[in-house]
């Protein structure tokens, strides 16, 4: 079993390598760091620009494969190169990834748990008021783009603060500047910052998961084994929870990987709207600044994130379904 999980991991790793390479090559050919210098007034001498770009490994006069090789060699040493502002990409990512992970992980974990619970509850109470409310709200939420949802939550937060007369929830940044992040007050302050942007992601994840979980459970509703369970003497709700929910969790494992990618994109919006300096914001800035190394670094990060989620999916699948255990 372990050997084959390992093989699966290697396969996923290959995909990450290929996807990051594609992203690097696309960025290296499509983005134009030179434009940053050409636009200056007066424009710096070409030789100076070339030297500068060479230093950053972003000179478009160097063949792209050469630059890729250089970048790849750096990557193998664990060095992602330097940003267009001549800062190490590693440091930038090291600082920003925790900001994003805080949002994404909280969203994924809380969202998945609540989503499964909501979906199961809806299926058990099929066609009753609670089910209808849950179904309709998840349907509506999934029709609202994350941006709009973010704006709505932000404005609702501001409205709430205004109504209370003091700042209960913060709508910009991760921490009020000047506070000690590790003191008790700092942690509370961080939490007050975290609530709204996380809530946006949680709501999306709950709607996403709840909908699938409900459908997966209703799919097993007509199954023979549920009928067997009832023929044994289990009541409908007992059978549905004990046999239906457990079986319906299996296909959910697959959605886990998708959910992560979905939430990362969602986090990009919430970061922008709530002024968090995370990976999403970094990426948007890098593309705008024609910062090839940073763009490639973010793609690598996302690839690894999806890889981990995919691998966790595989593990969860194997844990949930005895048929795939070897």
């Amino acid at each position: 079993m372990a050997a084959f999980l390992l093989r699966r991991l290697v396969y996923l790793l290959c995909l990450v390598v290929v996807s990051t390479s594609v992203a690097y090559l696309l960025a290296a050919t499509q983005l134009r760091p030179r434009a940053r210098y050409e636009g200056r007034n007066p424009p710096p001498p070409v030789a100076v620009v070339d030297a500068r770009l060479d230093e950053l490994n972003m000179n478009d006069k160097v063949p792209v494969l050469t630059r890729y090789r250089r970048w790849g060699a750096g990557l193998l040493r664990g060095d992602l190169g330097r940003t267009i502002d001549n800062q190490p990409v590693n440091a930038e990512i090291g600082r920003r990834m925790w900001v994003s992970l805080r949002l994404v992980v909280v969203g994924a974990v809380v969202g998945t748990l609540l989503g499964v619970a909501a979906g199961a509850y809806g299926a058990v109470k099929q066609y009753q008021l609670a089910d209808r409310v849950l179904t309709v709200s998840s349907f509506v939420i999934l029709s609202i783009p994350a941006v709009v949802l973010g704006v709505l939550f932000k404005n609702a937060g501001i409205g709430l603060n205004n109504a209370l007369g003091f700042k209960l929830l913060y709508t910009t940044g991760e921490l009020t500047p000047g506070m000690d992040p590790w003191s008790a007050a700092g942690l509370v302050n961080r939490f007050a910052h975290l609530v709204l942007p996380s809530l946006v992601l949680i709501v999306i994840a709950v709607a996403f998961y709840g909908r699938y979980q409900r459908n997966a459970m209703l799919d097993v509703l007509g199954s023979d084994f549920l009928r067997t369970a009832r023929a044994k003497g289990l009541r409908r709700s007992q059978a549905l929870i004990k046999h239906g929910l457990r079986t319906a969790l299996i296909p959910m494992a697959t959605f886990f990987a998708y959910e992560f990618a979905l939430l990362f994109v969602g986090a990009t919006f919430t970061e922008r709207l709530f002024g968090w300096h995370g990976m999403g914001e970094y990426f948007v800035e890098s593309v705008t600044k024609n910062d090839i190394n940073s763009v490639a670094g973010v793609t690598l990060f996302v690839g690894v994130l999806v890889l981990i989620a995919g691998f966790l999916s595989d593990l969860a699948y194997a844990a949930l379904d005895p048929r795939v255990r070897v």
């Binding site: 995909l15 992203a23 983005l31 990618a261 990426f283 024609n290 996302v302 999806v306």
Partner: peptide, 18 residues
């Protein structure tokens, strides 16, 4: 598989200048 691993959002963004 490859296209699914490629983050669509990021790739399109990278290509957007073109």
């Amino acid at each position: 598989d490859l296209l699914m691993v490629l983050p669509a959002f990021l790739i399109i963004a990278i290509l957007s200048p073109s």
